[in-house]
């Protein structure tokens, strides 16, 4: 079993009603699948950006045991 730490930033914290969650999935997953598992099958919105271990990645990137996956929206207020 693997452990993946998922973090949500900015408005996502309110949308998914949490700031972080630890997942213990069976077998390998992509970033998009991590989102789905963490967010009760809500599809990953197109504009949401993701990072694995602080590297900006696309949603089809594979995630490994111990990885930190961060999701964050574009922010534009000035």
């Amino acid at each position: 079993m693997m452990t993946i730490k998922v973090k949500f930033f900015a408005s996502l914290r309110e949308e998914v009603e949490r700031s972080e969650v630890d997942l213990k999935p069976q077998g390998e997953m992509t970033v998009a699948q991590v989102w789905a598992l963490a967010c009760q099958d809500m599809p990953l919105p197109e504009h949401i950006l993701s990072a694995v271990n602080l590297e900006y990645v696309s949603a089809d990137t594979a995630v490994k045991d111990g990885d930190e996956v961060a999701f964050f929206p574009p922010v534009t207020g000035g």
Binding site: K7, L54, Y56
Partner: peptide, 15 residues
């Protein structure tokens, strides 16, 4: 990225 609520910072490497 900065979250005032938890005072957390994250520095993401872009490509």
């Amino acid at each position: 990225l900065f979250e005032a609520q938890s005072m957390q910072w994250r520095k993401i490497n872009l490509s």
